[in-house]
């Protein structure tokens, strides 16, 4: 194949290193960028730099924010005795969209997975423990562990549970089960079995 342009190849290379982007999509995106007016491309590249320079982790919950302390942690309307622990910032957005949870969050930025070289010290567990310092923060009464129901997520839950046991606080995990509004007969067997296992007495 004839090498058309080194700068184009480099852009395709960079784009295809992004998650969910394969080589074909990267090529298509690169072609789109070439066709754009210069101002638009400048704006795109500036926003890439901006986001990298301005976004940092909240000092309390480790969620991404432009301030020292994120909007949720600094809000006076939130229940400061309740913390929901999630794997990634996207999970915060997902739960916020429900408008039902009024506590604070803690973002771990991953889960323990020796397969990917991620140990307990590589995710924000130390920061989570720091939040139990009652001289600095409100007393935490309950922790909700909302990690993904994968092998890694579940074992990270067990790890946190052992770690937090001496603190003697209420710890819960979110339920697994059927999507609301769906029919039993269309649920896959594994989800249905988990839902039966996690049944609630009436």
């Amino acid at each position: 194949m004839v090498n058309i342009s080194e700068s184009l190849d480099s852009l395709i290379e960079e784009l295809s290193s992004l998650p969910q982007i394969g080589r074909k999509t990267a090529r298509r995106l690169a072609m789109f960028i070439i066709k754009q007016p210069k101002e638009k491309v400048e704006k795109l590249s500036k926003s890439l730099i901006d986001v990298k320079e301005k976004i940092k982790f909240c000092r309390i919950c480790c969620n991404i924010t432009e301030d020292d302390i994120c909007k949720i942690c600094s809000s006076q309307k939130r229940n400061r005795n309740l913390i929901c622990v999630v794997e990634d910032p996207q999970d915060v957005y997902a739960i916020e969209k429900t408008n039902e949870f009024k506590g604070l969050y803690h973002v771990l930025h991953g889960r323990i997975s020796p397969l990917d070289g991620i140990g307990p010290e590589d995710i924000k567990i130390r920061e989570l423990l720091g939040r139990f310092d009652e001289n600095k923060f409100n007393r935490i009464e309950e922790l909700i562990l909302a990690l993904n129901p994968t092998v890694e997520g579940e074992t990270t839950i067990l790890y946190l549970q052992k770690l937090l046991k001496p603190l003697d606080i209420k710890i819960s995990r979110i339920a697994r089960g059927l999507p609301v509004g769906s029919d039993l007969e269309f649920a896959d067997e594994v989800t249905l079995a988990k839902a039966i296992e996690g049944r609630i007495s009436l």
Binding site: I112, P114, G119, P120, E121, V151, E154, T155, T156, L158, Y159, Q161, K162, L163
Partner: peptide, 24 residues
């Protein structure tokens, strides 16, 4: 394996994680 080859994990963390894996 990473613990036996002297990985970065501490003894406390290792023990806690191993217990979690054994529970599961």
């Amino acid at each position: 394996k990473s613990y036996s080859s002297g990985g970065k994990i501490t003894g406390f963390e290792f023990n806690n994680l191993l217990e979690s894996y054994n529970d599961k």
